[in-house]
Design a protein around this nucleic acid. Structure first.
Length: 154
DNA sequence: GCCAACGTTGGC
DNA sequence: GCCAACGTTGGC
């Protein structure tokens, strides 16, 4: 299977690229959107490369990279009553929410704000740059991935 | 199966 | 804090 490329959002107050650097591997819990779930469940493979995007912060932007580190498995928080991600309709036999683990790869030496991405003609087709796209997990092309990494490593 | 009401995301 | 855009829920 050929490698795919992704962008995944996280609010850095909740979990940032530096948190991932510290823990090395993290379960990407709490995704409660079917499209985003389907990407993790159906399309991700171990070794896929991922842009780590900081959302709801000033400024929002891409902070580094990580890789997919596990096959999909049920998000444990859907079964945990005390969690805000608890889902009473999910059962162990029929889990509703699937997720993957991610592994730290790099912190960009240059943080790439959303506004800078918007100015890059080459990145014009990226999902997160389209008006109204709120998806927290989106595919990116290999060319887009490489372009952003090159900007981030400057 | 439609769609109004409501909830959430996330940039600004 | 505002609000546009979008997703989900539930009555009918």
């Amino acid at each position: 299977m050929t490698k795919k490329y992704w962008l995944m959002k996280s609010e850095p107050d909740e979990f940032s690229i530096l948190d991932l650097k510290r823990v090395k591997v993290e379960a990407w819990t709490g995704i409660r959107n079917y499209q985003a779930r389907n990407f993790m469940r159906d399309e991700m493979s171990v070794g896929d490369e991922v842009l780590f995007y900081h959302s709801s912060t000033r400024p929002p932007g891409v902070a580094g990279t990580m890789t997919v580190a596990s096959r999909p498995y049920p998000d444990p928080l859907q079964f945990k009553k005390s969690s805000k991600y608890y889902d009473e309709k999910a059962t162990k036999e029929k889990p509703r929410w699937m997720m993957v683990d991610v592994k730290f790869q790099s912190v960009f030496s240059t943080y790439i704000p959303l506004q800078v991405l918007k100015n890059e003609v080459k990145l014009g087709n990226m999902a997160i740059l389209q008006k109204g796209t709120r998806l927290s997990i989106t595919p990116v092309t290999a060319a887009e991935f490489r372009h952003i990494v090159k900007m981030g490593e400057k």
